[in-house]
C-alpha cells in the first residue's frame, strides 16, 4: 500500500492543472461557450498539429479570448480516422473543435469516405511552404538539371512525408513526367535523413524542418511549390517561373462538426481571428516555425479548403 500512498502524494504534488468547473451563467447577447471545450487532435502529442493546437489554446487562455477550460484530446485511432469521423458525426455540438490541416483532409477525402460537408471550417490559421531539396553532393545544381535528367530518362527517387508532400510529387509526375518514384516516410525528418544519407535523389520538405541544414549548405533548395520565392536561405525558383503549373501551399486550420450552430461558428471564427491577430501568435508560432501568416475566417476558410478537397478527390 505504501507504493500507492507514494503515488497519491506525488500525484498531488505534481498536479498543476485543476479542473475548474466554471459557474454557469446564462449568457445574454452573443453566444459564448457554456462548458468546457474539447479540442480533438488526430495525431499524437508532440507533433506539428499538437504544437499548433497548444499554441492556440495557450493564447486563448492567456489573452482571455475564451474563458472556459479547453482540453486537448488526442484521438489517434485509425491514423486519426476515428477522431475525424467522430467529430463530423456530432449533432448540434458547439463545444468541440478539431485541428484539421491539409494533411488531415487528404486521408479524410481519399480513404475515409468523408468530405467537407461533414465539417464546418472555422479558420485557416497559417500556410506552410514546401521546398524541394537535394544533397550538397548531388550532381544536380539546379532544377533545370533535374528536369533535363528526367527528360533523358534518368530514374529519380523523391523522398517526402506520407501526408502533404505527396501531392507535389503527383503534380510533378503529371506536369514534368519522367521516371520518378516516391519514397514515403513517416515524417519530414525521416525524409531528410534519407536525403542526407544519399538514399534518395531529392526530398520534399517544409522550411522549418530543414532550416539549419539549408543554412549550412548541407542541403540545397531547388524549387518551391509556393506562389512566390522564399527569402534566404531558401531562395529558389518557383515552379511557375520554370513554366510548370504547380502551385501549392499547405494549410493549418481548425474545423467544427457539420452540425455546429451558426452562432457558435461565428463565435469560434471570431475567437480564432483574435488569436491570429496577437503578437504572441506571430512571434511565438508563425515566425518560429517559418510559416506564412495567412488567417482566413470561417467563410474564406471553407472556400480555401474546398480547393484542396477538389484536388485530392481528383
Amino acid at each position: 500500500m505504501k507504493k500507492l500512498l507514494t503515488l497519491v502524494l506525488m500525484a498531488a504534488l505534481a498536479s498543476t492543472a485543476v479542473f475548474a468547473e466554471g459557474q454557469q451563467e446564462k449568457a445574454e447577447g452573443p453566444w459564448t461557450p457554456t462548458k468546457g471545450v474539447e479540442w480533438v487532435v488526430t495525431s499524437s502529442a508532440g507533433g506539428g498539429s499538437s504544437i499548433f493546437t497548444q499554441n492556440i489554446v495557450e493564447i486563448m487562455k492567456n489573452e482571455g479570448i475564451v474563458d472556459k477550460n479547453i482540453i486537448i484530446n488526442y484521438k489517434t485511432d485509425g491514423g486519426g480516422a476515428v477522431g475525424r469521423r467522430g467529430v463530423s458525426m456530432m449533432k448540434n455540438e458547439a463545444h468541440t473543435l478539431l485541428t484539421f490541416n491539409s494533411g488531415d483532409l487528404q486521408p479524410f477525402v481519399q480513404r475515409e469516405g468523408g468530405d467537407l460537408d461533414g465539417l464546418t471550417p472555422l479558420a485557416v490559421m497559417a500556410l506552410d511552404g514546401q521546398i524541394l531539396l537535394v544533397n550538397m553532393d548531388s550532381p544536380y545544381k539546379s532544377m533545370e538539371d533535374v528536369i533535363a535528367a528526367l527528360k533523358s530518362g534518368e530514374r529519380l527517387i523523391i523522398g517526402g512525408s506520407k501526408s502533404d508532400d505527396e501531392a507535389i510529387y503527383d503534380a510533378m509526375k503529371a506536369e514534368i513526367g519522367g521516371d520518378m518514384e516516391y519514397l514515403r516516410s513517416d515524417s519530414t525528418g525521416e525524409a531528410l535523413t534519407q536525403l542526407l544519407g544519399g538514399h534518395v535523389d531529392m526530398a520534399i520538405a517544409k522550411p522549418a524542418a530543414s532550416f539549419d541544414l539549408v543554412s549550412t549548405g548541407e542541403l540545397v533548395p531547388m524549387v518551391t511549390a509556393s506562389a512566390s520565392r522564399f527569402g534566404e536561405p531558401f531562395d529558389a525558383p518557383t515552379f511557375t517561373e520554370l513554366g510548370y503549373d504547380i502551385e501549392f501551399q499547405i494549410y493549418r486550420g481548425v474545423v467544427g462538426p457539420a452540425d455546429m450552430p451558426a452562432e457558435a461558428v461565428a463565435y469560434w471564427s471570431d475567437a480564432l481571428a483574435k488569436v491570429a491577430a496577437t503578437d504572441t501568435w506571430k512571434n511565438e508560432y508563425i515566425n518560429k516555425f517559418l510559416l506564412v501568416d495567412n488567417h482566413l475566417d470561417a467563410d474564406d476558410a471553407k472556400v480555401y479548403m474546398q480547393k484542396f478537397e477538389d484536388m485530392y478527390s481528383k
Binding site: T76, D77, A81, V82
Partner: peptide, 16 residues
C-alpha cells in the same frame, strides 16, 4: 510503401 491501407476489413479503427 504504396500509400494505401490494407487488411482494414472496412473498419475505420483498423485503418491506422
Amino acid at each position: 510503401v504504396v500509400g494505401t491501407p490494407r487488411y482494414d476489413f472496412g473498419s475505420l479503427h483498423l485503418l491506422g
